[in-house]
Structure formats: C-alpha cells, structure tokens
Amino acid sequence: MTTKTQSLLKPLKRIEQGLDAIIQPLVFAGMAALIGVITLQIVSRVMFSAVGWTEEVARFLLVWITFFAGTLAFQRGRHIAVTFAVDALPVRLRQAARIAGTLAVLAFMVALVVIGYRYMQVQSFQKSASLRLSMTYVYSVIPLCAAVMSWYAFVDLLELLIDGERREESVP
C-alpha cells in the first residue's frame, strides 16, 4: 500500500475503530442487562409476583443486542459467506466479484437506512404495553445499525478499489 493510500484509509480505519470501541461495550452492557432482567423475571415469578415490565425490556434488549452484535460481526467479516465460487476465479474477476458484492451490500444497507427510518416514523405513535415507551426508540436501531454497516461497507469498497490486488495476493 502506498503512502498516499495509507493516508486516505488511515482516518477511515480510525473511525471504524472508534465505532467498534462504542458498539462493543454497548453489546456487553446490553447482554449484562439482559441477564439481569431475565434473572429478575425468574426470581420474581418464583419468589413473589411477576414483575410485568421484565418481559418487554428483555425483548427490546434482545432486538438491540442482535442488531449491534450483527454490526460487529459485519465489520469483522464474521457473517456467513459462501466464497468458494469467488475464490476459484482469476484475480481480476475475483476482485470485480468482491467489488460487485460490496456494492450490493452497500446499496442494501442504504435502502435499509431509508426504509428503517420510514418504519420508525410510521410506528412513532405506538407505545409499548408495559413501559409506555415510544416504539420509535425500539425501531431506531434498524436505521442506526444499517448506517454503521453502510459505513463499514463503504470503507471495504474503498479498500478493494484502492488496494484490491495486494489484498487479494495476501489472502490465504
């Protein structure tokens, strides 16, 4: 990688690391909260009368954890991928296929940001049953995580366009 491309990608990678530094503890805290809420739910049902809001909070936490953990998995390339066909291609076609795939992911994520935002707005009048929380907050995770994944896909696309061949040669 040349110095010019390093200087272009370095701040983008720093932003990715910053997002990762925010999302990772958020997922951890969400998991800890989910364990606490479910434990409270079990203990209250066995020992006392059930606490009504625990089921709803657990459901919302699970949704948020799923989206944020999916974002982390996306950034680390941990989602399920079938790559044997692309890996069998010659280097130039492999690079073109990866660029096309990354463009498709980027387009999907941008569409999900728009659709998720619209859905969030449509559901803004609805309140949750126990907490009376606006469902806008619950559904806001969709466009938020899609926007972060769009950023990750954009950086991946730039990496492929700028330094694709070298990256291809270094892949085992």
Score class of each variant (00 low, 15 high):
Q126I: 13
T136A: 08
R59V: 02
I115L: 15
Q24V: 08
F154W: 12
I22Q: 15
A81K: 13
S134K: 05
V114M: 09
G101M: 09
L161E: 12
L160M: 09
A29D: 04
L158I: 13
K127H: 01
V86N: 05
M109I: 02
G101S: 06
L144G: 03
A97Y: 06
A104E: 02
G70P: 14
V122K: 05
F48P: 06
I115P: 00
V63H: 00
A33D: 02
A147Y: 11
V51C: 01
V148E: 01
S128F: 06
R118K: 10
R92N: 11
V86K: 07
E55D: 11
L89C: 07
S130K: 12
I99V: 14
A21H: 10
L157W: 07
Y137R: 12
L161I: 15
M120G: 02
A58E: 01
F125R: 14
T3G: 03
L72V: 06
I99D: 05
M47W: 06
A33K: 00
R78G: 15
T39W: 07
Y117Q: 01
L26M: 05
L34R: 05
R76G: 05
Y137K: 11
F68S: 07
R78C: 04
F108P: 04
P90N: 09
K4C: 04
I142D: 06
V122C: 00
R166E: 12
W53I: 07
A146S: 15
M109P: 00
A29M: 13
M109G: 04
M31P: 01
V37N: 10
G36R: 14
A32E: 00
S130D: 14
Q95P: 00
Q17M: 10
I80L: 15
L12R: 01
F74W: 04
